[in-house]
Amino acid sequence: MKAVKRHPRLVIGLVLVAAFVILGLVMPPFAGHDPRDWNTFPKHIKPNPAHPLGTTGLGQDTFWLLSYSLRNSLILGVLVGFFATLIGVTLGVFAGLKGGWADRGLSLLMDTFIVVPSLPILILLASLLQGRATILIISVVLIVFNWPWPARQIRSVALAMREREFISTAWFSGESTLTVIRTEIFPYISSWAVGNFINTVLVAIAVESGLAVIGLSSLQESTLGTMIYWALQYQALLAGRWWWILPPVIAIVVLFVALFLVSSGYTQYATAKRGR
């Protein structure tokens, strides 16, 4: 209870994210059928005990489809978040510590990639692949566009740290650069890295589902965005079939707020722990 009081954001966020992880990663195998298959059930059934969220206009069970779609969205988000953060932190630390031309070159590259709008490039790719874009291809493109954000932040942290006394002490006492990074710098930036990882998960899921909402993501796979796309395509909104369109919309909203609560709550928690 004490933890809830001290870090309400973090705790509420974690509980919500845990619920999504259970729904998305633990539940899907229990469906007993492939939730993507069309015409498994009668169409347009309102929510009832057998189908807690009803069925879609394509004859899928909305609940299991949601659970399955959530899994794909989460996998994509974690994949992009992990690699973008890893690449970003590595290059950021390198640029900040090394300084000079390496730093100038890398900084320029980061600033450049941040400005280039990623969505048009993704649309181009998706259109050329004609619906055959897999989650993996989309992830790779998203990693290319998302590493500069952590890199930029970590670089300025590393730059400031280079001047700190404990780093100089370690340096002059003959530690190798790698040891300095591992023992002195990494503990310091790890909380930034975690916060950034969660943020990137959020951004990746947001961009993919954006692409999917307009029908340009992977058409064979199902993600939260493609669910919205099919619901819109079949006029679920105009026909008042709220149980089809609302679950993915609400899932995205709650998931994003939860992830944001975790990332900002974790930053608060880490700051408090460091005693600053």
Partner: peptide
């Protein structure tokens, strides 16, 4: 930075159709 953004962005637009397994022309 401005020149680099345009260069990298337009290079991507140039490269994406060329890195695909299928040729857009044949498609």
């Amino acid at each position: 930075t401005y020149i680099l953004v345009i260069w990298i962005g337009v290079t991507m637009v140039f490269l994406v159709p060329r890195f695909l397994p299928s040729s857009p022309v044949e498609a």
